[in-house]
C-alpha cells in the first residue's frame, strides 16, 4: 500500500495498513528549501519544489498544497498586503457597500489572481509524485469566509445580525460560493486527489452555531454533494474550538474535517468520527513548534490512541505549522504514524 492508497482508502472509510500522515507545512517547508515566501506564493515551480523537497525529507503520505488565505478574495478584487515575507492578508474590502455586491464577478480559475499559480503547482506535483503520494489541493476560503473578506470582516459580521434577510447578503454569499466551487473543480482537474477548504470565520470562535447553520453550512453541504457527484472528496478546515458545531458536522454528507487542537479529540471522535474522516489535531505551536521531539511523539501517540479505532483518521497538526518549527519535531510527527498507527 503506497502513501496515496493509504490516504484514499482512509477517505473512503476503509482500514489502511497504518494511520496516514499529512503535513500543513508550507511555511517551514519554504524556509527549509531557502525559498522566500513571496516567491513560494507567486512562482508555481518554486511552490512545487518546496513541497517536493519536504516530501523527500519527511516521507509524509499526503502533501497539502496551499498558497495563503487571500488567494480567492484577492482574485475577486480585494486589496492584499503582507508582512515581510509572511503570508498575505486582506487589507480592505472588495466592495464599499453591501449594495455593491452585483459588481462582483465569479473567478475564472485559469486566469484570475494567483489561482493559476496554485493550479500549475498542483500539475507539477501530480507529474512528479502523482499516484504515489496523495495530493490535497486547497481551494482557499469557503463562501462564508470569502464573503466576509470581500465585504470587510467586521461589517459582514454586523450585517449578519442587523440585516440577516437582506437579499444582497444572500447574493454576496452566492457569488462567493460560485467562485469557490470553480476553484475546487480546477484544483481537481489539475491533478489533486482530493480538495479542501478553509472557513474559519464561520466557526464558534466567531459566530453562533445558529449563524453557522444558516449562513455557512448550506454552502458546505452543496459543495460536498456537487463534488461527490464527480467523485471528489473534500475536507473542511475550521480553526479554533469547533465543539459547539460537531453535532452539525455529524449531519453532513460524507466528507473529511480537519479539526484544530482546541477541539476535544475524544468528543470529536464519538460525535463525527464514524461516517466522516478526521484530520488533525496536534497543537501546531505549543507542541510541534515549541516542544521537543519526544513530546511531539507522546502527543501523537495519545491522539492516535483516541482516533485510530475504526479508521477514518489522518494524522496532521490542527493548523499551519509556524515557519520556525524545528525539522526534528516535524520528523517526529511523521514517524509517529508508523510507530503507533499500525492497524495489523
Amino acid at each position: 500500500m503506497n502513501s496515496r492508497d493509504r490516504v484514499m482508502a482512509t477517505l473512503r472509510g476503509e482500514i489502511p495498513d497504518r494511520v496516514p500522515v499529512c503535513l500543513h507545512n508550507f511555511l517551514p517547508a519554504a524556509r527549509e528549501a531557502g525559498v522566500p515566501l513571496g516567491r513560494y506564493l507567486t512562482d508555481p515551480a518554486a511552490t512545487a519544489a518546496v513541497h517536493l523537497q519536504a516530501l523527500r525529507k519527511y516521507g509524509h503520505d499526503c502533501v497539502l498544497l496551499d498558497l495563503d488565505t487571500t488567494t480567492l478574495a484577492e482574485a475577486m478584487g480585494a486589496p492584499r498586503d503582507s508582512a515581510a515575507d509572511g503570508p498575505g492578508h486582506i487589507a480592505g474590502p472588495a466592495i464599499a457597500n453591501l449594495d455593491d455586491v452585483d459588481s462582483l464577478r465569479p473567478v475564472d480559475p485559469q486566469r484570475d489572481g494567483r489561482i493559476p499559480v496554485l493550479l500549475e503547482a498542483i500539475r507539477i506535483l501530480a507529474r512528479e509524485v502523482g499516484g504515489e503520494v496523495a495530493i490535497r489541493g486547497n481551494a482557499d476560503q469557503s463562501a462564508f469566509s470569502l464573503a466576509a473578506l470581500l465585504r470587510g470582516m467586521q461589517d459582514f459580521l454586523v450585517d449578519l445580525v442587523t440585516e440577516p434577510d437582506n437579499p444582497a447578503l444572500a447574493r454576496l454569499l452566492e457569488v462567493a460560493h460560485e467562485s469557490h466551487v470553480a476553484v475546487h473543480r480546477a484544483v481537481r482537474e489539475a491533478g489533486a486527489d482530493f480538495t479542501s477548504l478553509g472557513d474559519s470565520l464561520s466557526g464558534p470562535d466567531v459566530v453562533s452555531p445558529t449563524v453557522f447553520r444558516r449562513f455557512a453550512r448550506p454552502y458546505h453541504e452543496r459543495l460536498i454533494r456537487d463534488l461527490a457527484a464527480d467523485g471528489t472528496t473534500t475536507l473542511i478546515h475550521i480553526c479554533g474550538d469547533t465543539s459547539q458545531i460537531l453535532d452539525q458536522f455529524a449531519e453532513y454528507p460524507s466528507c473529511a474535517f480537519e479539526l484544530d487542537y482546541k477541539t476535544d479529540p475524544l468528543r470529536a471522535k464519538s460525535v463525527v468520527g464514524r461516517g466522516h474522516t478526521l484530520f488533525g489535531n496536534v497543537d501546531p505551536s505549543s507542541v510541534v513548534a515549541l516542544s521537543t521531539p519526544g513530546h511531539v511523539q507522546e502527543s501523537c501517540r495519545q491522539l492516535i490512541e483516541a482516533w485510530k479505532p475504526g479508521g477514518r483518521f489522518v494524522l496532521n497538526s490542527g493548523c499551519a505549522l509556524p515557519a520556525s518549527t524545528p525539522s526534528e519535531n516535524i520528523q517526529a510527527l511523521v514517524d509517529s504514524a508508523a510507530l503507533f498507527g499500525r492497524y495489523d
Binding site: Q154, V158, V161, P204, V206, V207, S208, Q244
Partner: peptide
Amino acid sequence: AGDIFVPEMLIAAR
C-alpha cells in the same frame, strides 16, 4: 460564557 458571539459584541461596542 459562549452565550453571545463576535457579531453581538461588535454591535454592543458600536
